[in-house]
Design a binder for these strands. Structure first.
Lengths: 135, 135
DNA sequence: CTAAGGCTTCCAGTGACTGTAAGGTCAAGG
DNA sequence: CCTTGACCTTACAGTCACTGGAAGCCTTAG
């Protein structure tokens, strides 16, 4: 299977697959003409990577997860700990985004949004109207 | 006011302030010894940038927002449109994170997390147990 | 034989900083 | 006057995870 097919069936761009090879996440074989040759096992790894990245794990997390996957003696506790840590980070990020959203929403709702130059959003960013300590 | 004081009072790292100068967001004066010298106006701009970045606007958004702030003829509708677009992006990001979180939570809850190698999280990443089309 | 499309490598760019090195400046203490 | 330490300066490299582009080889269809 060459890189185009591997890309199609994994959903990962060919560029990304080459990058994963560069950083040592996968090591496809090569055919006599120098083209990459992806076996079933390689495709399985690509699918694994695609899913793990899709869940927001970092590349280094993926590296660890793959090695845990290939280590039949691993303890599931290790994996669970990683996953939980990642869930926490996502939760933190969500809370951060929600807080930004809330603050900006207040400003947006105050803004009439017409052709006049008066703009509570800019005033808020400039530090005016911060009596509520919102920024 | 030198960069250390500017950093303390704006909450932005000195490195970041220098970077903002590099990319043309601020242009502090210089004293005879070559040190940056931040006036009250510069401090106001730094505070503006700090708030806008804190709300998740990109650097380019900040550039636009600052020029709108300084343009007393701007239409508040322009600012409101930018802010709304940004709110939408944040909402999309939140939804994306929530979806990842939900999927990973299911896997984490299935995992007993002990010393045994059996691990539903890794199995999920590997594409097993995807009967519910969850990944 | 040629043209299109896929493959290869390598290098540079993204965003928004952050780290580090090498060196100039300043104020206080001895 | 000298030193020490805390500032400040610049310039360059590194981060993360790709992504774009150029230059050139390989394969397949017509």
């Amino acid at each position: 299977m060459n890189i185009g097919e591997a890309s199609n069936s994994s959903g990962l761009p060919a560029k990304t697959i080459r990058y994963y090879e560069d950083i040592g996440l996968i090591s496809p074989d090569r055919t006599s003409n120098g083209y990459r040759d992806f076996s079933h096992t390689h495709m399985h790894k690509l699918a694994f990577l695609s899913r793990a990245r899709g869940l927001g794990f970092t590349i280094e997390d993926c590296r660890t997860l793959m090695s845990l996957y290939e280590d039949t003696d691993r303890a599931s506790a290790d994996v669970k700990a990683m996953a939980r840590e990642h869930l926490e980070k996502m939760e933190d990020k969500i809370e951060e985004l929600k807080a930004m959203q809330a603050t900006l929403s207040v400003l947006v709702n105050k803004c009439h949004g017409d052709n006049r130059p008066d703009c509570p959003i800019l005033q808020g960013l400039a530090g005016e109207n911060t009596e509520e300590g919102m920024l």
